[in-house]
Simulated assay, not measured.
Amino acid sequence: MGELRAGADFLDAAKAILRQERQRLAVLLQCPHELVLVGGSSLPGTLTKGDVDLHLRVSVDAFTQAVAAMSDVYEVVLPEIWAPTLATFAAKAALPTGIAATPAGSEHDLRFTRAWQRLAADPALVDAYNDVKLRHRDDPREYERMKSAFFDSLQA
């Protein structure tokens, strides 16, 4: 996973990337949408490896068209995890940047939205999230498994 640092170290750069990608998507997408900053770089108290995670929310009706448009401009990443309500991309930016696209109200949308709202509101959850990262940072497969389980627990 690499060195972990405080999310606060990357927050300004992450917000600049968010603004940049909002501008790009405003031209690219012909539908209403919302792009929000999530992930470790979005909260000052979290630990991060310095990447930026963005969450694109579009209407259910616009999802297929938005994904097709993004596929022409952004790098498709992790196609093996794509689902009818999730597509993932990478943006060329000052920091490694991923974009998860979801239809608003879908299972994947609610997973991102609720989890990051809960983390932002509860320092104890941030501590638990950081603990997962610290305990499993040397084993990427176990880290992904435990991080997924942690986010599953936030949905209950």
Rank of each mutant, 00 (worst) to 15 (best):
Met1Ala: 00
Gly2Arg: 02
Leu4Lys: 03
Ala6Lys: 11
Asp9Val: 15
Asp12Val: 11
Ala14Arg: 01
Ile17Lys: 04
Arg19Asn: 15
Gln20Lys: 14
Arg22Gly: 09
Ala26Arg: 10
Leu28Asn: 03
Gln30Ala: 13
Gln30Lys: 13
Cys31Leu: 01
Cys31Thr: 10
Cys31Glu: 06
Pro32Ala: 00
His33Glu: 08
Leu37Ala: 07
Val38Thr: 03
Gly40His: 03
Ser42Thr: 06
Ser42Ile: 04
Leu43Lys: 00
Pro44Val: 03
Thr46Gln: 13
Thr48Pro: 12
Lys49Met: 01
Gly50Trp: 08
Asp51Pro: 07
Asp51Met: 08
Val52Lys: 07
Asp53Trp: 02
Asp53Gln: 08
His55Trp: 02
Ser59Trp: 00
Phe63Pro: 03
Gln65Asp: 10
Gln65Val: 08
Ala66Gly: 05
Val67Glu: 08
Met70Cys: 14
Ser71Asp: 10
Ser71Lys: 04
Val73Leu: 12
Tyr74Lys: 01
Val76Pro: 07
Val76Ile: 12
Leu78Gln: 13
Pro79Thr: 11
Glu80Phe: 09
Trp82Met: 04
Pro84Glu: 04
Pro84Thr: 04
Leu86Cys: 07
Leu86Gln: 05
Phe89Asp: 00
Lys92Met: 12
Ala94Asp: 10
Leu95Lys: 06
Thr97Leu: 01
Thr97Gly: 02
Ala100Pro: 04
Ala100Gln: 09
Thr102Ser: 15
Pro103Glu: 02
Glu107His: 13
Glu107Trp: 06
Glu107Ala: 15
His108Met: 15
Phe112Ser: 04
Thr113Met: 01
Thr113Val: 14
Arg114Val: 11
Ala115Val: 01
Trp116Ala: 02
Ala121Asp: 13
Ala121Met: 06
Ala121Ser: 10
Asp122Cys: 10
Asp122Asn: 15
Pro123His: 00
Leu125Thr: 00
Leu125His: 05
Leu125Asp: 00
Val126Asp: 03
Asp127Ser: 05
Ala128Arg: 10
Tyr129Arg: 11
Val132Trp: 01
Lys133Tyr: 02
Arg137Glu: 10
Arg137Phe: 11
Arg137Asp: 13
Asp138Trp: 02
Arg141Asn: 14
Glu142Leu: 15
Tyr143Asn: 05
Arg145Lys: 12
Met146Trp: 09
Lys147Met: 04
Asp152Val: 12
Gln155Lys: 00
Ala156Met: 14
